[in-house]
């Protein structure tokens, strides 16, 4: 029998090892798998590479891993936010390696990893510092740069519902990087609000098919970034 549902957040992240490359879903607070991230902070794996759009705020989510000195390298499009003091400080002190990637290139590099694409050419970033050192090639009279896939050992993703096979349904703009990250990681770990019976999800509405998901954990009342940040401010 196929059952990808694990009992606890602790079990969900138990094998995330030192030096792992971890894709982290979410865009700002939407879709951020805060409960999984805090479980990983608790577990204490070190020298991680985090691939995510943002770098967390306050001491919440990715920022908690950064503050704990668990991250050696971060790949993201927009690390700076209101209250992103942890990454600000680490970067200024030269204690973290940052690779800045245009947001669409980041999404496509992740998708390419999941889709078995060895690399792709994009017009994005041509003529900018982010294209320096990359192979250029002209297609149809327009210059493009070569971008390579970003594989991961693990993906941490938040969705709304899953069944025991790992089919996923998302809610609103929570989806963002989740589907391509589930495809790209060797082990995709997903926190959902509800685990439903097999057959209960309408197959027409499944967004991430079960084959891309390895582990599901139910978190009926997920942590709220807004509430955690408000509490930090008190």
């Amino acid at each position: 029998m196929m059952n990808k549902v694990v009992d606890s957040l602790e079990d969900a992240v138990a094998d995330i090892h030192d030096g792992a490359v971890v894709h982290v879903g979410g865009f700002g607070m939407a879709g951020s798998p805060i409960d999984l991230l805090h479980a990983l902070a608790e577990r204490g794996a070190r020298d991680l590479t985090i691939v995510s759009n943002n770098a967390g705020v306050g001491r919440v989510g990715i920022a908690r891993l950064l503050a704990g000195g668990q991250v050696g390298r971060i790949v993201c499009s927009f690390p700076r936010q209101d209250n992103s003091t942890v990454i600000d400080d680490l970067h200024r002190e030269g204690r973290i390696e940052l690779e800045l990637v245009p947001q669409g290139t980041l999404a496509e590099r992740i998708r390419a990893a999941g889709a078995g694409i060895g690399g792709f050419y994009t017009p994005t970033s041509v003529g900018t510092p982010l294209a320096e050192g990359k192979e250029h090639r002209v297609f149809d009279g327009r210059e493009h740069v070569l971008e390579l896939p970003i594989h991961a050992d693990f993906a941490l993703v938040k969705a709304e519902k899953a069944d025991r096979w790992g089919n996923l349904v998302y809610r609103k703009a929570q989806r963002n990087f989740g589907p391509p990250m589930c495809m790209a990681a060797t082990t995709a770990v997903v926190q959902v609000r509800t685990v439903v019976e097999l057959g209960e999800l309408d197959p027409e509405t499944v967004v991430t098919p079960s084959i891309f998901v390895d582990r599901v954990v139910a978190v009926p009342n997920p942590l709220s970034e807004r509430e955690l940040i408000a509490r930090e401010g008190e």
């Binding site: 499009s77 200024r92 800045l100 017009p123 994005t124 970033s125």
Partner: peptide
């Protein structure tokens, strides 16, 4: 001169 630059989706938006 930014301590911490961020690019977001701007380069994709102007390319496409």
């Amino acid at each position: 001169m930014d301590a911490l630059p961020g690019v977001g989706g701007a380069m994709d938006l102007v390319a496409g």
